[in-house]
């Protein structure tokens, strides 16, 4: 069943939620947020898209194989953890520093962000796979 109101509202709201989820992802390593919650939120936007426009439109707009996200995300996280071993540091040790970007000013970066990004991919992959299996088959 299509709803005009839902369709119109979600086209706007979607981007706001998506941007907010990236915000959560980027700050997650030392403030509330992180890959898990950001991944759930991103999946929520995709589900909104799915509810508002139907599964066919979702596939047109996002022609992604979400199942492939899971191993890729795991790989990113696992490798981020393993890199410190080469430098004689324990598993998962995070390096961090500060960078001066032209528009954003000084920001803090940490390799924990990469780990979070892996988690993010896994969460999106799992959630979307579950939704598509339950919703389409």
């Amino acid at each position: 069943m299509k709803s005009f109101i839902l369709e119109t509202v979600s086209k706007v709201v979607l981007f706001v939620i998506l941007i907010f989820s990236f915000y959560l992802l980027l700050r997650g390593h030392n403030a509330p947020g992180g890959g898990f919650i950001a991944g759930l939120m991103t999946s929520a936007t995709f589900i909104l898209l799915y509810l508002a426009l139907g599964p066919g439109a979702r596939k047109q707009i996002l022609p992604l194989n979400f199942r492939a996200f899971i191993p890729v995300g795991l790989l990113i996280s696992a490798l981020t953890g393993l890199v410190p071993l080469a430098g004689g540091k324990p598993f998962l040790t995070s390096a961090f520093g500060y960078a001066d970007l032209p528009v954003f000013g000084e920001i803090e970066w940490a390799t924990a962000m990469l780990f979070d990004f892996g988690v993010y991919l896994v969460v999106v992959g799992v959630t979307m796979s579950i939704i598509s299996v339950l919703g389409e088959e």
Partner: peptide, 19 residues
């Protein structure tokens, strides 16, 4: 530091299989 290997090796193996 290598103590993590028994945990990470099977994980990497599983990822490789999924890929």
């Amino acid at each position: 530091n290598l103590l993590i290997l028994p945990v990470v090796l099977p994980l990497l193996g599983a990822i490789a299989i999924f890929l």
